[in-house]
Design a binder for these strands. Structure first.
Lengths: 219, 219
DNA sequence: ATTTATTTTTAGATTTGTCTAAATTTATTT
DNA sequence: AAATAAATTTAGACAAATCTAAAAATAAAT
């Protein structure tokens, strides 16, 4: 189904709000999208007529099967682009969201699947959110802080919670990035620092503080 | 200057037509953009009011300095994305244009400059057209067929004229891609075949026919 | 130099997505 | 349960980008 940019934004927002909060209503959506409640009503009618959501006047609304499927496609595009921007172009966390908001509307499925492939099918985006696969399936990967990763178990770096320039500088120095394969060789109890190995990089030691802010998931 | 997608498409089209043909008029532009002459007139007024082109009713129009600058920015984005799609994602020539038409409207200059950097500042896109740099400057690189490259002179693969699946398969096999560093070690006069060296690949021999369809530019 | 043909512009309508203000429905209070 | 408050929808307007059909200007032809 060919959707306009606006329609896509509404669908994606409804999906995201449904994930987080119990009930999504007109006002909360209007607030989230920074628009008026009247605009929401207009779009709800339109999406209903396109059979993407269930909607009964004054009673509320909810994405149906088809709507969910569309939402997942958009979210997949958004998160793959975010991953690309951080992992390949080296952009900073805070900046990638807005750019991905634009890139996500380019809908060629060949493009997206090739991008996915090129990025080696990442499962989690730089903010730690899961990336739906081609079929809309989301892996349920539990992330953990690097400090909680058992010794000698290899894992993939998925996100970093503290994104200060100082943190980024240090990660860069060690060659740690989103998607890096990582393994803890030894933990020093004294200060919580860890001796680690990043694939294709020399061994090194990072502080307990860093280990607390780096998140990984098991392979 | 923030431009709408439509405004960008008009500006880019005017620029492209001005490159190719002597005089651009309302009808030819309407024809090129697959729209009506009336729409062209409307947009000309708008672009004039934004001071991006000179326009006098019934007399014709032309991009001014500012308009040219905007056009070059859009073309830069378009061609960098085309390069990315072919060189990194391995997409085929014919397919990249339409996708780049969409990607080109994402206008973050940080994104584009980082992409440029990531691609190692390509000078020519997969169709053989030059890519403007950050300042809008276009390199005047004369391409030549690989068969005309002097022995032992290293060059960069810029485009391929015959894009059949068979050709693509062969290039893939040899590891020849857009941006590859290439050098001719020996030319066999008998059949025009060439012994070549692609950076980081073993030496190999390609046919005269292939050498005629692969284009390169000097480093 | 008129007439005819072509090109360009205007006038007015349409679609999409938005808005404000008023009306309606549902929820909450006393 | 009547009154008040809050949420939602409708009505009507607007800007952007487009269209068709008619009018105006320029170019070409006899």
């Amino acid at each position: 189904m060919k959707l306009s940019e606006s329609e896509e934004n509404y669908i994606k927002s409804i999906y995201n709000l449904q994930e987080k909060t119990e009930k999504v209503n007109t006002n909360s959506l209007a607030n989230f999208l920074n628009t008026s409640a009247a605009s929401i009503t207009d779009m709800l009618k339109k999406l209903k007529s396109k059979k993407l959501l269930e909607y009964k006047k004054y009673y509320g609304f909810r994405l149906n099967e088809a709507g969910n499927k569309e939402a997942l496609k958009i979210i997949r595009r958004h998160r793959l682009w975010e991953y690309f921007l951080v992992a390949k172009l080296g952009m900073e966390w805070e900046k990638v969201h807005d750019i991905a908001e634009e890139l996500e509307h380019v809908s060629s499925s060949e493009l997206i699947n090739k991008l996915d492939n090129y990025l080696e099918n990442p499962k989690i985006d730089p903010h730690g959110d899961p990336i739906p696969d081609e079929k809309g399936k989301i892996a349920v990967l539990k992330q953990k802080a690097l400090k909680d990763l058992p010794i000698k178990q290899s894992a993939t770096v998925s996100s970093v919670s503290n994104q200060t320039p100082e943190m980024m500088e240090m990660l860069n120095h060690y060659g740690i990035g989103i998607g890096s394969q990582i393994k803890v060789l030894k933990a020093f109890e004294f200060d919580g620092s860890l001796q680690i190995k990043i694939a294709k990089k020399p061994e090194c030691i990072i502080s307990g503080m860093a280990a607390q802010n780096i998140f990984v998931y098991d392979n």
